[in-house]
Simulated assay, not measured.
Amino acid sequence: MTLSTAPARATSLSPAQGIWLVAERELSTKLRSKAYLISTGVLLLIALAGIIWAGIASATPSSTPIAATSSAAATLQGVDGFEITDVADRAEAERLVTAGEVDAAVIDDAASPTGTVIIADKEAPQSLLMLLSESPTVELLNPDAAGGGMRYILGIAFGLVFMMAAISFGSPIATSVVEEKQTRVIEILLSAIPARVLLAGKVLGNTLLAMSQILLLVVVGTIGLIVSGQTAILQGIGGPVAWFAVFFFFGFILLAAMFAAAGSLVSRQEDVGTTMMPVTYLTMIPYFLVIFFGDNPVVMTVLSYVPFSAPVGMPIRLFFNEAAWWEPLASLALMLVACAVVITIGAKIYENSLLKMGARVKLGEALRR
């Protein structure tokens, strides 16, 4: 009696119930994994420690120890970044430099065109050279308000989070599909639910896991900024982070469908690396492009509209007020169109390749079947 009623219950599942059933299975499997929980905890601790360390380092001013004779010391008094030790003459200054007690010494010298001489062991501190050098006044007609250092930091932050999350949660989709094919479990699953429902459940479950990790990173980052006194950063980064989360959500769905399709093309774990390689490149390329071309406005504008790089490029442009109000909406619309197209193609590849065992299924064959 039990055997005869089991298929009836399986086939009575609605698509929504089937999708959530598969998604719940993906969530429970991951959340029961000690490796996943430990790696997530370590990631959060590293992020928190990095933010707090950066805040402490920026709040702790560093000073360069130098020696100076009376006239030179009077010139340097009140200048931040230098710890001045008064010396009587050149001999005493050279002794302190040789002993390593100071990084350099500034002494009076009437023979020098500037009236002073810097004495150092191997190399004079650049900050001291710049202070004592006379530079012409510079006037910029079109100053760049976007700081290069902050742009670089944001590029690393957004790009690395997107790349690592996509690979960490996308690759297991492909490997689980191959495992199900290799163990013939896929035949049992397909007898209960359609292939597209199975695909949707896998994508949904891993998307929820990825988004939960992103939200945890945002919470930990906010706590770290508040604890380290970097609250000024929070005032301008809230909007870009929100847009990053939105773009990441749809960008990950797009990549997850591609990972699942890549896994369905092979039947052995040894072969999955070759089919996943193109998708892996699509997750890595945006990170490196933003790092290398982050200060190029033309390249960044293009990257903010390409679906695979928009989750990184658009938030950075928004942070520096380089994008109009309608641009993230237009980019998101393109992302949604790309998601629809890629999911449709990926679902067809997935559906046509799941029961194909043995040799690797060619892409053209998977699309034609």
Rank of each mutant, 00 (worst) to 15 (best):
L217R: 00
R9F: 14
L199E: 00
V117K: 00
A111K: 08
L132H: 01
A359V: 14
L334W: 04
L318R: 00
G205L: 09
A256R: 01
G41P: 09
G155P: 10
R32W: 06
V266Y: 10
L131T: 06
G224M: 05
A120S: 13
M284F: 12
I38P: 03
G78H: 06
A104R: 04
D144H: 13
T116V: 15
E101W: 11
E101K: 13
T222R: 00
I233A: 08
D80W: 12
V272C: 09
I253T: 02
T275N: 02
W325M: 09
M1G: 08
G205I: 13
V312M: 01
L282A: 13
T5P: 00
V178C: 06
Q182E: 10
V227Y: 05
L96T: 03
V219E: 04
V272D: 08
L132V: 10
D80Q: 14
P65W: 08
V279I: 15
T98S: 09
W20A: 07
Q230W: 11
F293L: 13
E351A: 11
V218N: 05
A74S: 12
A192M: 08
A8F: 10
A262E: 01
E187T: 09
Q17C: 06
L363M: 10
F293T: 05
A104L: 08
T175E: 10
A242F: 15
P278R: 04
P307T: 02
A91K: 07
M314G: 05
A35L: 14
A338G: 07
Q269S: 04
K122A: 10
K181Q: 05
L190Y: 03
R317T: 05
A195Y: 03
G251K: 01
G346E: 04
A195M: 06
E187H: 09
L225E: 05
M258S: 03
I156T: 01
L329S: 02
L132D: 01
F82S: 01
I316F: 06
Y305S: 02
G313A: 08
P286Q: 09
L329D: 01
W53D: 03
V227D: 13
E270M: 13
F82M: 07
G221P: 04
E24M: 07
I233M: 10
K34T: 11
L3V: 08
I38R: 00
S133W: 05
L131R: 04
A260I: 09
I52S: 01
G263N: 08
N352M: 07
A165Y: 12
Y36F: 15
P61W: 13
S133T: 15
K348D: 00
Q235N: 11
L303T: 02
A49D: 05
E134S: 11
I343W: 10
A260T: 04
T137N: 11
D108E: 04
L140P: 02
T69C: 03
A232F: 08
A242S: 04
I56R: 04
V220W: 12
R360S: 15
I253P: 00
A174G: 06
I107E: 01
V227N: 06
A10M: 14
E123L: 15
A91I: 00
S62C: 01
A260K: 01
F169P: 05
S331I: 08
